[in-house]
């Protein structure tokens, strides 16, 4: 840090945040974006109606540390692993955090598929920031 009076992180975590699928409910995504901003992170917000391809373009060009995706009910089992796989296929070593309703019984399957973190609807700001930071740390 070059300025002793400057308390901000000189190398903030950069997160690409997106919603997969057609559904337009972005309340949760927007709340999470603000929580991460207030946690000192830089959020590259892609918004609604993204595909794995558009997310990968963004991750690559933005040199992102973490991908956060949000999805409608019941999409996590297919879309979460699909995102992880697509990133791996593109040769991008970037962890994926998923937001949405994920039943506890599905969590082991998500972890096995390589999803770095899962955030449910009741997650607090601290939990959200900690989860994304932990995911970023796995990247080294």
């Amino acid at each position: 840090m070059n300025d002793p009076g400057d308390l901000t992180d000189p190398t903030p975590v950069r997160v690409v945040l997106a919603k997969l699928g057609l559904d337009g409910h972005d309340r949760g995504l927007k709340v999470v974006a603000r929580m991460l901003r207030d946690g000192g992170m830089e959020v590259v917000y892609l918004g609604l109606r993204q595909t794995t391809d558009t997310i990968i373009d963004a991750v690559e060009q933005e040199d992102a540390d973490v991908v956060g995706i949000s999805m409608l009910n019941a999409g996590h089992l297919t879309l979460g692993p699909r995102m992880v796989e697509a990133l791996a296929d593109a040769g991008l070593d970037v962890p994926v955090v998923i937001g949405g309703i994920v039943p506890d019984e599905d969590r082991p399957a998500m972890a096995a598929a390589g999803v770095a973190g899962v955030l449910g609807p009741g997650a607090s700001a601290d939990e959200v920031v900690a989860c994304v930071r932990a995911a970023a740390d796995t990247r080294g």
């Binding site: 309340r27 927007k30 603000r34 601290d126």
Partner: peptide, 13 residues
């Protein structure tokens, strides 16, 4: 709307 939603989440938090 986003401001109101965030305010509510923070209060619950």
């Amino acid at each position: 709307i986003a401001d109101a939603a965030y305010r509510y989440e923070r209060e619950v938090n």
